[in-house]
């Protein structure tokens, strides 16, 4: 029995965790892993309702930097895990720090000056810009050796649509990663209701996402990039 891979997940929300766990299961192909969900210190009373899940990832990155008091890559969280997956949906590229009052003293980057959204296709123009911004949150210019950045375009729900509803006409489109309609589509399919992503529905479909992961990789460039980066860090069993 090979040693379980220790994977920490920093993600926008709990349904993202379900999708990422399904993807990792598929990637590890039967090898066991020890998932840990990581969150910033956050008092929910102080968290404005309007703030999206990416704000939590932002805060975690800033706390990482503060803790390390030097390059974030020196933070012990990397030494304590085989890898740390950091997920932010690429729709965040449309956001600005000034939209969120709780973000104080943000870095002077593209999200500070304007947004970092680029024309799509190709999706990578936007996701690359967002990844640079994310690294800046950690005070890094390159991806730390044990980090895996995960930036689904436009959101992780794109992967869910492709995995679970392959016959959907939009899921078949080569431009699926540039399509903004995935969340309304998941409302239609019952995974999202009244703006809430339904965790029980996501969990019920976890196996389906895992089984369809090769198709998701084939259709979504960011899923492929995530898979390649992840597999490169899996330690030998």
């Amino acid at each position: 029995m090979s040693k379980p891979v220790k994977v920490a997940f920093v993600m926008e929300g709990s349904t993202d965790f379900v999708v990422l766990r399904a993807a990792v299961r598929a990637l590890l192909n039967g090898r066991d892993f020890e998932p840990t969900s990581v969150w910033p210190e956050l008092d929910e009373n102080l968290r404005p309702k309007a703030e999206g899940g990416w704000g939590a990832v932002y805060k975690w990155c800033r706390q990482l930097l503060e803790q390390a008091d030097g390059p974030a890559r020196d933070n012990p969280v990397f030494a304590m895990n085989d890898m740390v997956v950091i997920q932010v949906d690429a729709d965040v590229a449309r956001a600005r720090y000034s939209d969120y009052k709780s973000i104080k003293n943000p870095p002077d980057d593209e999200l500070f000056r304007h947004t970092c959204e680029k024309p799509c296709p190709p999706p990578s123009d936007t996701t690359n810009a967002l990844r640079t911004v994310m690294l800046g949150w950690m005070g890094e210019t390159a991806v730390p050796p044990k980090a895996v950045l995960c930036t689904p375009s436009k959101s992780i729900e794109t992967w869910v649509v492709v995995a679970l509803f392959p016959d959907d006409k939009d899921a078949k489109s080569p431009k699926i990663e540039c399509w903004w309609g995935t969340e309304p589509r998941l409302r239609k399919y019952g995974l999202i209701k009244s703006g809430q992503k339904l965790i029980d529905k996501y969990r019920a479909n976890e196996q389906g996402i895992q089984d369809a992961w090769p198709d998701v990789r084939a259709k979504c460039t960011e899923a492929e990039r995530f898979s390649t980066d992840f597999l490169a860090l899996v330690p030998a069993g």
């Binding site: 920490a8 840990t36 990581v38 803790q67 933070n75 030494a79």
Partner: peptide, 24 residues
């Protein structure tokens, strides 16, 4: 590790890191 002790010195104690999920 020395790094953990350094962080604790600055207030990032093990209890805080545990709640964040850093130590599992």
């Amino acid at each position: 590790t020395d790094k953990l002790l350094e962080m604790a010195e600055k207030g990032w104690t093990l209890s805080r890191l545990w709640i964040m999920g850093h130590i599992g």
